[in-house]
Each structure stands twice: as structure tokens, then as C-alpha cells.
């Protein structure tokens, strides 16, 4: 296992489309729910323990060798908002392209064939980690971190927030992020024997509702 490979995959500049998505932050800013670094911290904490935990568990399960087609169906059921399902598949497709070019793998090729329009991003992320020689914990760390780093950098653009404040928010979440990763990996290991019902289904009503409000908005900076 290479720690440097983890840095490549987790790099915000890894060309997999994340820069065009705000992880629900734009909808929350427009609705007046995020207006400061403190709000951003609250938003990120909530997202980490819901969408972040679920994404981390799915990424870990895929990295540990669970059936990606079953994982994709289970991810669909955990994503009631059609706008979020579309965003997850779009990002999954973009990540698939980047991952196949970076770490060629038969498993990635097979998943790309099964889902030509994209599988759920955390499932692709898990397989990408596997192709890069990384483990379930690495994949979970990537997914959990992405769940908060995306909203943080988007909020810097949306509110002209001080970038040092936004980075401080991420740094202060780090211990909680590690705990989320532990829960995600434990659930992923359980899912290998018990099936996808063992994976978390933590939901955030305002992320789902906000995603639909955002998709219906004619003027927006971020795709989701």
C-alpha cells in the first residue's frame, strides 16, 4: 500500500469533476442557511455524519471487494433526490475516466461497461482506490474528506469567505472525520458477509430538499 497513491487520489486537483459541485453548499447559501465560517462548520459536520458516512462506507466496501453492482443499487436507495442521484452518477462517470487513465484495472473496465452513464461516485472511488493499491480505510478517508472539502472550497467562492477560515473548519473536523471513517470501515466489513443492508443509510433532509431546489434554479454557479 502506498501512502503517496492516497495523496494522488485525494488531491483536490485530481481531474474528476468535483470542482463544479458544491455538495449542497450553494443551495444552503441561497436559502440563507450558510452565511459564515461557523455556519459552514455546522453544515460540514452534518454532511460528514450523513452523506459523508454513507459515501465512506460505500467506498470502503467497494475497495474491500464487495459487488459494485449491488453497492450501486443500495446507493440509489439511499439517495431519494433524483438531482443527487444524477450528480452522483455524473461524478462517478468522470471519476471513472480519470481513474482508468491513472490506474488501469480490469475491475474498473468492467464497472464502466456495466454503467456507461456512470455508477455512484463512492462506488467508483472505492474501486479506484483498489486499483491504486489502496485499502478500505484509505477509500473511506477519501470519501469522507471529499464530503466536506467540496462544500468548504465552494463556500469560499460563493461567500468570498476567508480561505484560511474555510481550511480551519476542515482541520477542526479532522478528529470527527477519523471517527466517521472507523464507523464506515466497520460497516463495510460487515457488509461483506451480511450484504448491503449492513451499510449506513444516514440521511439529511435539507440536503435532499436543497438539491431539488437547486436543480430547479435557472441561475446557479455549481452543478449541485
Amino acid at each position: 500500500m502506498s501512502r503517496a497513491a492516497l495523496l494522488v487520489l485525494a488531491d483536490g486537483r485530481f481531474p474528476a469533476g468535483g470542482h463544479a459541485h458544491s455538495g449542497g453548499a450553494e443551495a444552503a447559501v441561497r436559502a440563507g442557511r450558510i452565511d459564515s465560517a461557523a455556519d459552514l462548520a455546522d453544515f460540514c459536520r452534518g454532511r460528514l455524519h450523513t452523506a459523508g458516512l454513507v459515501a465512506a462506507a460505500f467506498a470502503a466496501a467497494a475497495a474491500l471487494g464487495a459487488d459494485p453492482v449491488e453497492l450501486d443499487a443500495a446507493a440509489d436507495a439511499r439517495t431519494p433526490s433524483p438531482a443527487l442521484r444524477a450528480a452522483a452518477r455524473k461524478l462517478g462517470r468522470q471519476l471513472m475516466r480519470a481513474a482508468r487513465a491513472t490506474w488501469p484495472s480490469d475491475e474498473l473496465d468492467a464497472l464502466a461497461r456495466a454503467f456507461p452513464k456512470g455508477a455512484h461516485q463512492p462506488v467508483v472511488l472505492g474501486l479506484a482506490a483498489r486499483a491504486a493499491g489502496l485499502g478500505g480505510e484509505d477509500a473511506a478517508h477519501c470519501a469522507a474528506y471529499e464530503s466536506v472539502s467540496g462544500p468548504a472550497s465552494a463556500t469560499v467562492r460563493l461567500l468570498s469567505l476567508d480561505p484560511f477560515d474555510a481550511t480551519g473548519v476542515l482541520a477542526r473536523l479532522a478528529p470527527e472525520l477519523d471517527l466517521v471513517v472507523d464507523r464506515a470501515v466497520a460497516a463495510a466489513r460487515l457488509a461483506l458477509t451480511e450484504g448491503t443492508d449492513a451499510l449506513p443509510a444516514a440521511s439529511a433532509p435539507l440536503l435532499e430538499i436543497g438539491a431539488e431546489a437547486h436543480a430547479a434554479r435557472p441561475m446557479r454557479l455549481f452543478a449541485s
Binding site: 455546522d42 453544515f43 460540514c44 454532511r47 455524519h49 450523513t50 458516512l53 444516514a202 439529511a204
Partner: peptide
């Protein structure tokens, strides 16, 4: 799954949840 109230994972009452 919705988890809320004291002792629930952080951020349940915040702008994402």
C-alpha cells in the same frame, strides 16, 4: 435513516440536516 437529538452524530440540527 434520520438521527437527531442530544447524543446524535454532530450537525443534526445544523444547515445540512
Amino acid at each position: 435513516e434520520l438521527a437527531c437529538g442530544p447524543g446524535a452524530p454532530g450537525g443534526w440540527d445544523g444547515p445540512a440536516v
